[in-house]
Simulated assay, not measured.
Amino acid sequence: MNIGEKIKQLRTDKNLTQPQLAEAIGIEQSYLSKLENDKSIPSADIFQAILKAFAIDVGSFLDGIDEKIIHRQLRQIPDVANYLNAGVAYKIHNIKKWLYGSAAACVIGLTLIVAGEKNLLFSSVRYNYVSPGVVLPNESADILDSFTFRNSLDRKVNAKLISYDEAAKLLSDFENERSRPSYQLTDRYQGQRFVAPVEGGSRTYRLTDTVVVQSPNNRHLTLLGSVLTFAGIFGFFVEFRLRKI
């Protein structure tokens, strides 16, 4: 659509005749006829008068007019130039936001990939601790040695502190319950040894070895980082294609 067609369309929509519109604008009918037939281009004052006559803004008037015609014939009008410049500024602002978002996605994505591959957030080292058994209160740690425990029972029996039946029961509990080893595989280093309270006593855990495993959390970080990086690159590509269009 050209400028004259737009003026004629607006006039028709308002059910105005050429004389009526010419009077509202403050121009001769012959000049309005030239405008509608694209034999003349409105000046800045006439353009403002046209907008006022139709009670519309610049954007509404330009809507539907060929962009090449707008830039070639109307851009010299200050109101049109300001409108176009504002539109360009808005587009640039949106482009910047899109590019910043894509760049942020790439940076975060690559950071997560490195963190996942280098095990920066979640350790891949596992510490294996073992406890040989449960130590009761007021007992020494070496009581867990079977020979030492038997000698302790024998001394108590000889001293008539406990009976043979009680000693047999204590030995059975020791062999079936207390001397059962307990293992802990953890990603938290707790020293070469640590004591953990348990029902009836405590267990002393000693570090036996360390193992390296692939943490699922690191795999998830790498996957998430790959998705974000791809999204960022795709965002740059889409922005480039849309700008060309």
Results as ranks from 00 to 15, higher is better:
residue 32 L to Q: 01
residue 33 S to L: 00
residue 35 L to E: 01
residue 37 N to S: 15
residue 37 N to W: 06
residue 38 D to R: 02
residue 38 D to P: 00
residue 39 K to V: 07
residue 39 K to S: 13
residue 40 S to G: 12
residue 41 I to L: 04
residue 41 I to Q: 02
residue 41 I to W: 00
residue 41 I to V: 15
residue 41 I to C: 03
residue 45 D to K: 10
residue 48 Q to K: 07
residue 48 Q to E: 08
residue 50 I to N: 00
residue 51 L to E: 02
residue 51 L to G: 00
residue 52 K to S: 10
residue 55 A to F: 03
residue 59 G to F: 03
residue 59 G to H: 05
residue 60 S to Q: 08
residue 60 S to R: 11
residue 61 F to W: 02
residue 62 L to W: 01
residue 63 D to S: 07
residue 63 D to G: 06
residue 64 G to Q: 09
residue 65 I to G: 00
residue 65 I to T: 01
residue 66 D to Q: 12
residue 67 E to G: 04
residue 68 K to R: 11
residue 69 I to A: 09
residue 69 I to R: 07
residue 73 Q to N: 05
residue 73 Q to M: 04
residue 73 Q to D: 08
residue 73 Q to K: 14
residue 75 R to L: 08
residue 75 R to C: 04
residue 75 R to W: 06
residue 79 D to S: 12
residue 79 D to C: 05
residue 80 V to W: 06
residue 81 A to E: 15
residue 82 N to P: 00
residue 82 N to T: 06
residue 83 Y to P: 01
residue 84 L to I: 12
residue 84 L to Y: 11
residue 85 N to K: 13
residue 85 N to F: 11
residue 85 N to G: 13
residue 90 Y to C: 04
residue 90 Y to T: 10
residue 90 Y to M: 07
residue 90 Y to A: 14
residue 90 Y to H: 08
residue 90 Y to N: 12
residue 91 K to L: 15
residue 92 I to S: 05
residue 92 I to H: 03
residue 92 I to N: 10
residue 93 H to Q: 11
residue 96 K to Y: 11
residue 97 K to Q: 10
residue 97 K to T: 02
residue 98 W to R: 06
residue 99 L to P: 00
residue 99 L to C: 05
residue 100 Y to F: 07
residue 101 G to H: 07
residue 101 G to L: 04
residue 103 A to T: 11
residue 107 V to Q: 06
residue 109 G to F: 12
residue 111 T to K: 03
residue 113 I to W: 13
residue 113 I to L: 03
residue 115 A to N: 15
residue 115 A to L: 12
residue 116 G to P: 01
residue 117 E to S: 12
residue 118 K to I: 05
residue 118 K to H: 14
residue 119 N to Y: 14
residue 121 L to I: 14
residue 122 F to L: 07
residue 122 F to G: 00
residue 124 S to Y: 02
residue 125 V to E: 09
residue 126 R to S: 10
residue 126 R to T: 09
residue 127 Y to N: 05
residue 128 N to D: 05
residue 128 N to R: 13
residue 129 Y to S: 10
residue 129 Y to F: 09
residue 129 Y to K: 01
residue 132 P to Q: 07
residue 132 P to C: 04
residue 134 V to C: 03
residue 135 V to E: 06
residue 138 N to Y: 09
residue 138 N to L: 07
residue 139 E to W: 08
residue 139 E to H: 07
residue 141 A to L: 04
residue 141 A to F: 03
residue 142 D to W: 02
residue 142 D to S: 12
residue 147 F to L: 15
residue 147 F to M: 13
residue 147 F to N: 15
residue 148 T to E: 13
residue 153 L to D: 08
residue 155 R to H: 13
residue 155 R to A: 15
residue 155 R to G: 11
residue 155 R to P: 00
residue 157 V to L: 09
residue 157 V to H: 00
residue 158 N to D: 15
residue 159 A to F: 12
residue 159 A to R: 13
residue 161 L to I: 11
residue 162 I to A: 02
residue 163 S to H: 13
residue 163 S to F: 06
residue 163 S to E: 14
residue 165 D to F: 08
residue 166 E to H: 09
residue 166 E to C: 02
residue 167 A to C: 08
residue 168 A to Q: 10
residue 168 A to W: 04
residue 169 K to Y: 08
residue 170 L to W: 08
residue 170 L to R: 12
residue 171 L to Q: 11
residue 172 S to M: 04
residue 172 S to L: 10
residue 172 S to W: 10
residue 173 D to F: 15
residue 173 D to W: 11
residue 174 F to R: 12
residue 176 N to F: 11
residue 176 N to L: 14
